[in-house]
Nucleic acid binder design. Structure first.
Lengths: 181, 181, 181, 181
DNA sequence: GATGAATGAGGGTTCATTCAT
DNA sequence: AATGAATGAACCCTCATTCAT
């Protein structure tokens, strides 16, 4: 029965991510349970608090992203790794709508500071290598890059960018990041 | 009695803006009424729905912004007007925290499409003049600029940028916007 | 509408007392609302917490009892006042079943310490006068009397004493209270 | 495998008594299972309903009390046996807090009438002998004594009597019970 | 027009009980 | 026989909205 429980936990997590995406921060625990095909009690068994669920989603997402960064780093030159990651993230951002909105809501943000901080380190390494390779101007810090990244992701999501818009905006930002002086 | 009503409407609007700023999306109608110094019934008389209230705040804000654009346009060269406006907006974004969060919640965003569209024309004019003056690359459209603007504003608000971060991020974006080719 | 509100508050209070009596500590807020003929929101408007409701019931009850003591004191000799009060209280105890049970539940008791303490003073005065008149042995304190009173009331309620049982038990206790040495 | 089951039953019973004592009526079945060191399923195998568990605790307690009465009867004179039992019971009452509270909750009390009735016979025998020895007035019945007993136990529990209070109250009641006429 | 009391659907959460393993 | 994950009715409480005064 350990296997069942683990499978259900994963199902709930996936359902939560999906529902937060569709319904935004207003997503209900019941909706999540229904989507996962389990009783509401099961959701609470695995995530005693809505905040716990949120925390789990963030941690989970960031872990997958960290894996992706490592992959990119091992395959090509630092500049490509950096810009590909940036591009990929903004394009995929649509999936994170609800979670972002939820994070914006007061009170929950502190709960996810730790996983976010852990991830920040990864992004900073990616940036440092791109800067060492001369592909990114040296006067921007990891936090600035993260800020840009978050901003673009949020808007991509909120206003539903298509591929053309995405490309246009990223071109501007990338030119800005590459600019000397 | 019409004067009374109009004054109350304005008071509620101001109170709502203030309360959304302080309490975020969780602000209740009662808090707004208390802040405005009126009964809750009065709030609902002027804005039959919370959505209506939200709509009014946005419309109101955008109208004030339009005025600001006109002001900037009449005072200096197109490049300065464009970049000053952009900077100012991102810096002031903090004040709109709660409203943004609420907009992110499903169902409300469509309600404010119209006032945003109206404002879009104003921003596009500002951009066109800056481009004509050679201060902004010609291959970005108004929508791209708006997308960047919204993204940065949202993140400024969500993650609480201070002035240093603000300046760093804007430097990158402005360099990107000014870049030739 | 102030009058309406006051009337509703009283209705809720009465309903709560009745429902706690019938359903015991397990009484739900909905039952109370239904009994009072109001919506559940009204109950919460007047008593934001179940604990507040409990507190109000206790305070209310004790105030009525204090009035009753004063009445008895002004009408007859101290001995009669004391024993009549004791008898009356035990006989009426049936009405307080649920409240007593609720008090017994951990966590709520502290909330009602103050009104109980206030009432204690009244009972102590009643006792002191009866002792001064030689009708009650001098070696019992107010707390001892209250303890006896509470114990008998609770059991009267829990086990449903009829008048005969009541008289028999009180005879024993009164003899004990009157005993010299 | 029968031995295992019997041992588990006993463990659950002991755990339930302990947990009800510590957590009061709010004790959950899971707490009990955890304390007993068994799975929650095991608790329900032995006691299909929380009410069954309660019933078993009461029955168990009363059986032990019956044994205690027999012990007291065989060791000394009837008067001492009677008064010692009475005293002992009230003093130990604290241990039954949660169970009493639970009994007070609607619907459960009837379930334990039978074991209480069985025990009544034992107490009545104790009383009859004390009366025959002239140590207790002849005009009180077993039910009166039980009523007093229960009342004092409940209050001892509810209001947390210390030894001094216990002695003071019992002195009054014993004087009343011994009184002639 | 203004007021604020009343309303009740809906949210998060708990826990006795069931059932697959 | 034992386990503990799953279930869902029921609880307390909130808050947008309505309506009597």
């Amino acid at each position: 029965m350990r296997a069942d429980a683990r499978r259900n936990r994963a199902r709930v997590l996936a359902a939560a991510e999906a529902v937060f995406q569709e319904a935004g921060a207003a997503a209900t625990t019941e909706q999540i349970a229904r989507r996962a095909g389990v009783g509401i009690g099961t959701v609470f068994r695995h995530f005693p608090t809505k905040s716990d669920l949120l925390h789990a989603i963030i941690t989970d997402s960031l872990e997958r992203l960290t894996v992706r960064v490592t992959e990119l780093e091992s395959h090509g030159d630092p500049a490509t790794a950096f810009y590909d990651f940036f591009t990929e993230l903004v394009r995929q951002a649509g999936e994170k709508h609800g979670v972002m909105a939820l994070l914006a809501q007061t009170g929950e943000a502190p709960a996810v500071h730790k996983p976010i901080d852990a991830w920040r380190a990864t992004v900073e390494r990616l940036l440092a290598r791109a800067q060492a390779a001369g592909a990114v101007r040296p006067d921007v810090g990891g936090d600035d890059v993260l800020a840009l990244l978050l901003g673009l992701c949020q808007t991509a999501v909120t206003t539903g960018w298509d591929d053309t818009r995405c490309r246009a905006v990223l071109r501007v930002v990338f030119d800005g990041l590459a600019a000397r002086h």
